[in-house]
């Protein structure tokens, strides 16, 4: 089983990102489960969402404490939340930032990957909504999910132009991060 924890701020679409990952992974032949860390959500407040992927149906219902992968939608969260908490040493923490991985001095054995998803989102979507770009990048680094499946999931959720722009951002992020696998 692979476990993913997504950190974001209320309004950034962390829960949507988790749902889209679950849909895409299922299309790729995996079983999946996505759920938010339910809170009293407010725009801007730190939020979390979780994804599990496995080759067999998933029964476990607890939150995720030792994620294989962590996705951080907003680099300012690193100062507020222990995003590296419990991260497995052979996994990675993917952070949306223009800075390089060396900039982040977290106590973790997991590798740190960075990507300026905000810039990509602005270029392709025209809005600083980074959730779809980041799951494209996640697919690139992890190799767990095909980019086509992610694009399909996104275009099904957001039909028309919006979906197409997001799909372009996903592919760009995937191509950029594939080399770092």
């Amino acid at each position: 089983m692979k476990e993913i924890r997504i950190h974001g701020r209320g309004g950034q679409g962390s829960v949507t990102a988790a749902e889209l990952l679950a849909v895409a992974a299922f299309e790729d032949g995996k079983f999946s489960q996505a759920f938010p860390a339910f809170g009293v959500e407010r725009r801007g407040a730190p939020v979390m969402a979780f994804v599990r992927l496995d080759d067999k149906p998933i029964r476990l219902r607890s939150q995720i404490y030792e994620p294989d992968y962590v996705i951080v939608q907003d680099a300012t969260l690193v100062d507020v939340v222990d995003v590296a908490r419990g991260a497995k040493p052979d996994g990675f923490i993917l952070i949306n930032t223009e800075k390089s991985p060396e900039h982040f001095k977290m106590v973790t054995k997991a590798s740190i990957k960075t990507l300026d998803a905000t810039k990509l989102a602005m270029d392709f979507i025209g809005k600083p909504i980074v959730n779809t770009t980041l799951i494209g990048a996640f697919a690139g680094v992890s190799g767990l999910i095909r980019p086509e499946s992610i694009k399909n999931a996104v275009m099904e959720r957001f039909p028309g132009k919006v979906g197409e722009k997001n799909a372009a951002a996903i592919q760009a992020a995937y191509d950029m991060m594939e080399a770092q696998r």
């Binding site: 988790a18 079983f31 489960q33 759920f35 998933i58 219902r61």
Partner: peptide
Amino acid sequence: GFILSHVYEP
């Protein structure tokens, strides 16, 4: 509630 009502699964 939430654990089943808000989870996405196949």
